[in-house]
Design a protein around this nucleic acid. Structure first.
Lengths: 184, 184
DNA sequence: AACGATACGGAGCGCTGTTCCGCTTTGTCA
DNA sequence: TGACAAAGCGGAACAGCGCTCCGTATCGTT
């Protein structure tokens, strides 16, 4: 059994994950390594040591984001004014996450089976979270009750497909409209 | 009406189209501009003047290749030993062309409607050519007669999906096997 | 032949990924 | 606690790329 990782290395790994997620949203998954290093306040060597290839980093961020998104659901539900505003806030996190998810396919150019596995993980983990938010809002009488989590998540995912550099298309606007459409 | 283009400019444009096609097959659509310039024996400035963006170049090569592939059909048919060997040779050209075609989607990241248009052009132009090769081989009794051009072209196209840097997968080998399977 | 107009070539700039190694921090053991 | 490998870190340095720009060469016209 190899000796445990050093505490600073563990810290840096977490910092990097958070910084990379932030930068991916701001500049896309192809953002320069330097920008991610700067955001995290570490050197480039540190990134390469933790994540030898860009795909490694993207996958790690992806998993990290799935977890963050999953655990954000219940906590938003308990801190928000209403179930519906929790849902809105959660969807907002979800959209940030989709940037990473869509970049994933490109980053994992080979290995499509690995991609499928990650996609399954994503559905298993986030589907129930979305469902509980939906149910809470429905039981509070804020939205209609016949919306299924899969269709909502997929619909939002599809709305977010397409290049970010298109001034004429803002997915978040449409998603907001969609959410309004759920109200009773 | 603006004065005609200079003769050397026209020549260079043709040279570039041929050189780019060659390089795309060898190194992919992301090949360095320098490599294409070197292959064509021109300076980089010349490429940028004729094709301001990479997408412009890829699209131009694409159209050029569609035409070349379309006109190669009949001529192969008349110079080959048999219709079947003409078909084999044509498929070989077709596979080269697919490198450009698959790169097209990536190069035209925005503008998916433009991509659809180009795809339609591709089908209209190459479908009949493939059909005539198929029919000739069938009428010569070399292959079965129930193969439709669309399914063959699409099948071959799909076989060619996936990264080129995978040592374990050689699309041309499989395509050769597929072609053998058409024989009577 | 002479002279704009047009096109060409490639050096140069800025940005990127990736490596490599001297320096710092950490954990351990006497 | 102090000292000393081992593990980890930072960022200078190198290499490769896209793209621009302008002095030079070629073309077509008069």
């Amino acid at each position: 059994m190899p000796p445990r990782k050093r505490a600073d290395a563990v810290r840096n790994e977490q910092t990097l994950l958070a910084a990379a997620a932030e930068v991916f949203v701001r500049s896309g998954v192809d953002a320069p390594i330097r920008e991610i290093a700067a955001e995290a306040g570490v050197g480039m060597g540190t990134i390469y040591r933790h994540f030898p290839t860009r795909a490694d980093l993207v996958v790690a961020v992806y998993r990290h984001q799935v977890e963050a998104c999953a655990s954000a659901g219940p906590s938003l539900l308990s801190t928000s004014d209403s179930p519906f505003s929790a849902l809105r806030a959660w969807i907002d996190l979800f959209v940030d996450f989709l940037v990473t998810k869509h970049g994933l396919a490109g980053a994992m150019q080979s290995d499509s089976s690995g991609f499928e596995a990650l996609h399954g993980y994503f559905l298993d983990r986030l589907g129930p979270v979305c469902e509980s938010l939906l149910r809470a809002a429905a039981e509070a009488g804020e939205i209609r009750g016949d919306v299924r989590p899969y269709e909502l998540m997929r619909g939002i995912g599809n709305l977010c497909i397409g290049r970010d550099d298109d001034e004429r298309y803002d997915p978040r606007r449409l998603i907001s409209l969609l959410l309004d459409g759920l109200r009773l």
